[in-house]
């Protein structure tokens, strides 16, 4: 009983701390950048400063997108890890990024698409196809079980194939190359509200499915057989989980490009502190994922001055050591 209340206290403390961190990240994301905006300027309604207006609008857009992407990638990470029972599952490991890039580049070259909405749609299609493909290969290779090495290698092989196809299409064509290189680094510099509105429904749908799945996911941790015994339709839950994670990271990749390792780091970090109950794991991963993404973005803006360091590079450099640590500690392979 005592233990329980202690846990509750810890949980509440963690929730408060997470929310405060998100608040801090939000404010920093709004004020810091290639041009700093002071707090006073931020809250003064009448913007006398003619410059602050458009810059501020961009900052808001970017912060909103950061929160969306942080939510989406972290929840996608939780789902993938739960379903594959594989602690290293992450969009960047599975090769979803290069799959999305591949379809986008192919569509630019073959169909001549050029609006950002079309990019987003094709990126979504590519992400979904890649995820299914890699998952199937890992499943067959593991004899029905998706092992960490199988998943990572299937992802690596698919990435290699996709990037070869990308070069195949792109090398003869300088225009495509120029467009692609700016898409191929993850960044939450959104171009317009319209683009955000295009991906928002997909992300909301993904989050919604994830929330519905919470009770079943908790049962799934007991093992597939037990879960089936308890009346859970395991294949259906898994399919729904994969669908949700593909929607989430596909939509994010479509608008922000590849942002790796966030979905890998955050759930682990949250799990260590509050344990593996999905009721708390999913929302808290989402909140902390958003904070980390915003802070990485801010760090990239500050470090990279006068230009900026894209957030995808920052998360890769934060996340890869975490990934390696997980492997070293043996959490990735039992």
């Amino acid at each position: 009983m005592q233990n329980n209340s202690l846990n509750n206290k810890k949980l509440i403390l963690f929730i408060v701390a997470s929310l405060m961190l998100l608040g801090l990240a939000l404010v920093l994301s709004l004020i810091l950048g290639s041009k700093d905006i002071s707090l006073a300027e931020l809250f003064s309604k009448d913007s006398e400063n003619a410059l602050a207006g458009p810059i501020f609008e961009k900052r808001i857009m970017r912060t909103v997108l950061g929160i969306m992407a942080g939510f989406a990638l972290s929840i996608a990470g939780v789902l993938m890890q739960a379903i594959t029972k594989n602690p290293i599952a992450d969009p960047s490991i599975i090769g979803i990024n290069s799959g999305a890039a591949c379809t986008v580049v192919a569509a630019i070259a073959i169909l001549g698409i050029n609006s950002s909405i079309e990019y987003i749609i094709f990126a979504l299609i590519g992400a979904a196809l890649t995820a299914c493909f890699v998952y199937c290969i890992a499943m067959v290779a593991g004899g029905g079980k998706v092992g960490p090495v199988g998943l990572a290698l299937a992802g690596a092989a698919t990435s290699t194939a996709c990037s070869s196809v990308v070069s195949l299409i792109m090398l003869p064509n300088m225009n495509v190359m120029e467009q692609y290189r700016f898409w191929s680094v993850g960044s939450i510099k959104a171009s317009s509200w319209d683009n955000i509105m295009v991906v928002l429904p997909f992300i909301l749908a993904g989050i919604f499915i994830a929330l519905i799945l919470i009770p079943s996911l908790n049962v799934l941790t007991l093992g597939d057989e037990t879960a089936t015994g308890l009346g859970v339709n395991v294949p259906l839950i898994k399919a729904a989980g994969i669908l949700a994670s593909v929607l989430l990271c596909g939509a994010t990749t479509a608008i922000a490009g590849p942002i790796g390792f966030l979905g890998l780091m955050i759930p682990h970090f949250v799990r260590i502190i509050i344990g593996g109950d999905f009721k708390t794991l999913i929302p808290l991963s989402a909140i902390n994922g958003a904070s980390l993404l915003l802070l990485s973005d801010v760090a990239g803006r500050v470090i990279g001055r006068p230009g900026e360091l894209e957030v995808g590079v920052v998360t890769a450099f934060l996340g890869a050591p975490v990934f390696i640590l997980l492997v070293v500690k043996g959490r990735a392979i039992k």
């Binding site: 290293i88 960047s92 490991i93 960490p148 090495v149 990572a152 290698l153 992802g155 690596a156 680094v185 790796g260 390792f261 995808g312 590079v313 890769a316 450099f317 996340g319 890869a320 990934f323 390696i324 492997v327 070293v328 990735a332 392979i333």
Partner: peptide, 14 residues
């Protein structure tokens, strides 16, 4: 192998 794949992802970003 797993660590190699992780490092590869990082290098790709670089």
């Amino acid at each position: 192998i797993l660590m190699g794949i992780g490092i590869q992802a990082m290098m790709q970003a670089l």
